[in-house]
C-alpha cells in the first residue's frame, strides 16, 4: 500500500529535464476594433523540480501567461511545450487529459465546487482518472492539511484559509509533475497566508513537484529558486534567486 498518492513518484529523475518550455510566446485579444497585445515574445524554460515565481505589476500579463502555460488558453504565437507536449498541437480534450494527469492548480479565490464537500472536492482529479482508492488518498491529504475532521463540510462552511487548504490538497492528489499557483495567498490575511505558504512549500518539497507561482508578493517570490519579472507583457528579467529564503 502506498503511503501517499503524491509520493508515488517521489524519487524523480535528478537529470535537469525541461518540464515547461516557452518559446517566443505572444498573446493578443481583439478589443473592439483594435488588437490588444498582452504578452509579447516571451521565452523561458522551467526544469523539473524547479520552484519559480512570475512577478510583475498588475496588468503585466502574469495570469495570462499562467493560463497559457497550464493549457487553459491558446497562445497567439510561439510554442509552449508542457511535459514534452506541444500544447498548440493538442485539442481541448487532450489538453484536459494532460491537465488531469500532470498538472495541479491553486487559485487565489480557491475555486472549490460549492456543491461538493471538502472530501469530494479533493477526490475529483483521481475520480476523473478512474483511479481506485481516491477517497483514502483524499482523506490522507485532508489529514495532512489538518482538515480531516471537516471532510464532510461544504466550502461555504469553511473559512478562507480552510478553503485554500482543501484547494492545496486537491492540487496534490494526482501527484502532479507541475503545479501552477495563482496568488495563492492573495485572498488571505498575513497569518493565514504564511501558514498556507508553508503548507504549500512543505507539500511541494515532499512530492518534489515543479512549482510555478504567480504573485506580486515579493516576500513570497523570494522563497522561490528563480524569479521571472514581467512588465508590459514582456520578460524584463529572469534570474536565479540567490537570496532565497529557506522554506
Amino acid at each position: 500500500m502506498k503511503l501517499f498518492g503524491f509520493m508515488r513518484d517521489n524519487i524523480k529523475n535528478e537529470i535537469m529535464e525541461e518540464i515547461l518550455k516557452i518559446e517566443n510566446v505572444s498573446k493578443s485579444y481583439i478589443s473592439g476594433e483594435r488588437e490588444l497585445l498582452v504578452l509579447d515574445d516571451i521565452t523561458f524554460n522551467v526544469n523539473a523540480g524547479d520552484i519559480i515565481s512570475i512577478v510583475g505589476p498588475s496588468g503585466s500579463g502574469k495570469t495570462t501567461l499562467l493560463g497559457l502555460c497550464a493549457g487553459l488558453d491558446k497562445s497567439t504565437g510561439g510554442v509552449i511545450t508542457l511535459c514534452d507536449k506541444d500544447l498548440a498541437k493538442l485539442n481541448e480534450n487532450e489538453r484536459a487529459e494532460l491537465r488531469n494527469k500532470k498538472v495541479g492548480f491553486i487559485f487565489q479565490n480557491f475555486q472549490l465546487i460549492p456543491t461538493l464537500t471538502a472530501l469530494e472536492n479533493v477526490m475529483i482529479p483521481l475520480e476523473l482518472q478512474g483511479v481506485d482508492g481516491a477517497e483514502e488518498d483524499a482523506k490522507k491529504l485532508l489529514d495532512r492539511v489538518g482538515l480531516l475532521d471537516r471532510a464532510s463540510h461544504y466550502p461555504s462552511q469553511l473559512s478562507g484559509g480552510e478553503q485554500q487548504r482543501v484547494s492545496i490538497a486537491r492540487a496534490f492528489i494526482n501527484s502532479p509533475d507541475i503545479l501552477f499557483a495563482d496568488e495563492p495567498t492573495g485572498n488571505l490575511d498575513d497569518t493565514t497566508g504564511q501558514k498556507i505558504e508553508q503548507l504549500l512549500f512543505d507539500l511541494n518539497q515532499e512530492s518534489n513537484t515543479t512549482l510555478v507561482l504567480v504573485t506580486h508578493d515579493l516576500e513570497l517570490a523570494n522563497r522561490t529558486h528563480r524569479i521571472v519579472r514581467l512588465k508590459g507583457g514582456r520578460v524584463i528579467s529572469d534570474k536565479v534567486n540567490n537570496q532565497k529564503v529557506n522554506a
Binding site: 487553459l72 480534450n93 484536459a96 487529459e97 475529483i124
Partner: peptide, 15 residues
Amino acid sequence: ISSIAVLRCLGTKAS
C-alpha cells in the same frame, strides 16, 4: 459556470 470551469481546469473534458 464557475464549478464547470473548475471541473474543466482539473481535466474534465467538455463533453
